[in-house]
């Protein structure tokens, strides 16, 4: 690890801690920072205590986990498709997962089914995009993006269909969830455990990923079992996306912005990029969510609106600079 790598990871860690602290300190109820710390450590049964322990903390941790999941899924898809523009949202994977969850909502299935539905939707959507894009030994960038965008449009149409036939009392919940919402988040332990578990497994493959960015044939020549790597990346990326969508709805562009930013800062080595993406992706979503629930308080915005507002210009800029080269 070079000093630059260490600096980058330290910076990401500081950012993560700072973002979580801000999320705990800021909200529609003003609680002094000393009080927040006291509520965090002890329990006095007050309303403020419940706000910190049962609302802000779980929500911040869930936001962190979901952001991390999306950013790591983005890194994996970018390697798999050899394209820094790949992102679960852009490629329609989130759309597939969201359609499946909306279907489950329409059928009034129990909430526990959402994750399963999201996983099936994400895997199917990924398979569809990959299957239609795969050409010979390599993936074609333009075809991939076009396929992903068209598939995403298809899911959007399906989503509109489900919304139009849904009973009106369920519509507001569905809409808010669709735009990406962490308001219902309450059990951060599951996504956090998933993030840490997948990250640890991915770290074993980090150097393989470095080699794979230069093409699967070259990776094979350097001793990577590329068939297995592809399969692992495919399932891991779809699973992470599915988990994120099932918890927080379709939040876009985290998987695109975060890896790009880290690469720009000298973190293109996956041994740095993977943990860095988890930390920075988590921080980004925590900050976005904090902004979403405080910008026009006491009203809450869906966090997906905020990430898209940052993500769209970044994506367009990236697309432009890549085509210009």
């Amino acid at each position: 690890m070079t000093p630059g790598h260490r600096r980058l990871l330290a910076l990401a860690l500081v950012l993560a801690v700072a973002s979580l602290a801000i999320a705990l300190l800021v909200g529609s109820t003003d609680i002094p920072s000393a009080e927040v710390l006291r509520h965090l450590l002890g329990d006095d049964g007050s309303v403020q205590d419940r706000i910190v322990d049962q609302l802000r903390l779980p929500r911040a941790l869930t936001a962190f986990a979901v952001g991390g999941l999306l950013a790591v899924a983005g890194v994996m898809m970018q390697v798999l498709l050899r394209n820094p523009l790949a992102d679960p949202y852009v490629l329609g994977v989130s759309g597939g997962a969201a359609s499946a969850v909306l279907g489950a909502m329409l059928l009034a299935l129990p909430v526990a089914w959402y994750t399963a539905a999201a996983t099936v939707g994400a895997l199917f959507s990924t398979l569809l995009v990959f299957g239609l894009t795969h050409a010979g030994d390599d993936w074609r960038s333009e075809r991939l993006l076009l396929t992903g965008i068209v598939v995403a449009a298809g899911w959007a149409a399906l989503i509109s269909f489900v919304l139009s036939v849904s009973p009106s009392d369920r519509l507001p919940g569905m809409l808010f969830w669709l735009m990406g919402d962490l308001g219902q988040a309450s059990t951060p332990s599951v996504p956090l455990a998933l993030l840490i578990g997948v990250l640890m497994l991915a770290m074993l493959r980090a150097r393989d990923l470095n080699v794979a960015t230069q093409g699967m044939l070259r990776a094979a020549a350097l001793g990577v079992d590329t068939g297995r790597l592809r399969l692992e990346l495919y399932f891991a990326a779809a699973l992470l996306t599915a988990a994120a969508v099932a918890i927080a709805g379709a939040i876009g562009f985290v998987g695109l912005i975060v890896p790009h930013l880290l690469r720009r800062l000298g973190g293109s080595d996956h041994r740095v990029l993977l943990p860095g993406a988890a930390l920075v992706g988590g921080s980004l979503l925590v900050l976005a969510d904090t902004a979403a629930r405080t910008l026009i308080r006491p009203m809450q915005l869906p966090v997906g609106v905020l990430t898209a507002m940052i993500g769209v210009p970044v994506f367009l800029y990236l697309l432009h600079t890549r085509t210009a080269r």
Partner: peptide, 20 residues
């Protein structure tokens, strides 16, 4: 293939991949 973002030294170091 240019890959994305890697430096020349990092690229040549991937030649050591099978030994690590």
């Amino acid at each position: 293939g240019p890959g994305f973002g890697a430096s020349v030294l990092e690229t040549v170091l991937t030649g050591r991949h099978p030994h690590l």
